[in-house]
């Protein structure tokens, strides 16, 4: 484990009465840096909080915002649940998939975009909505998406899954 990770891990542990509570925050921190939860991060996490690597994998694989494989630098998560679906999410999804040339849970060949259809994002009043690297975008029409895409492509690199 790098000294930096160890230090961060200890900081997180200090927040809680039991070290294991720091496990998910620590994985989120590692994911912010590495782009996904690497095997090394899982090993580090286990060592840090005192659980086996098997347990870390079991826990990490439960949560959909922890990626166990490398995904794109732009994580696009479009809501697919009822309220968005009633207001055009299905069309938006087809549009984005066509535009990016990738499907649900896929990363583009150039490693830039990852696309996922997710469950209700709690923004039903401004449907259809999506998150890009955990940032909300509301009332997204295909045209609006094109604009977003352009903006993302020119914006300086940022972590796809910010930790805090």
């Amino acid at each position: 484990m790098t000294p930096e990770r160890l230090a961060r891990g200890q900081e997180l542990i200090a927040r809680y009465p039991q070290p294991q509570s720091a496990l998910i925050p620590f994985l989120q921190y590692c994911q912010e840096q590495d782009g996904y939860v690497t095997l090394q991060a899982m090993k580090d996490a286990g060592e840090l909080v005192g659980v086996t690597p098997g347990e870390v994998e079991s826990i990490a694989s439960f949560y959909t915002l922890l990626f166990k494989e490398r995904v794109g630098k732009h994580i696009i998560q479009v809501c697919r649940t009822l309220s968005c679906s009633l207001r055009g999410a299905d069309e938006l999804q087809s549009y984005i998939k066509r535009k990016l040339g990738i499907g649900h849970l896929e990363t583009s060949a150039d490693g830039r975009f990852y696309y996922e259809e997710v469950e209700c994002l709690a923004a039903c009043d401004r449907a259809p909505c999506l998150q890009h690297n955990l940032e909300f975008h509301y009332d997204v029409t295909p045209a609006a998406f094109d604009q977003l895409l352009e903006a993302w492509q020119t914006q300086p690199p940022q972590p796809a899954m910010p930790a805090e």
């Binding site: 998910i24 989120q28 079991s58 826990i59 439960f62 949560y63 915002l65």
Partner: peptide, 27 residues
């Protein structure tokens, strides 16, 4: 203390939430 979830609706259920804060699967 602010504890962030990591993607699981079931963690809204109170005992799953406790498990999740304890650093476990949110069951």
């Amino acid at each position: 203390v602010v504890h962030r979830g990591a993607g699981a609706y079931i963690c809204g259920e109170e005992t799953a939430q406790l498990e999740s804060i304890e650093g476990k699967r949110g069951e």
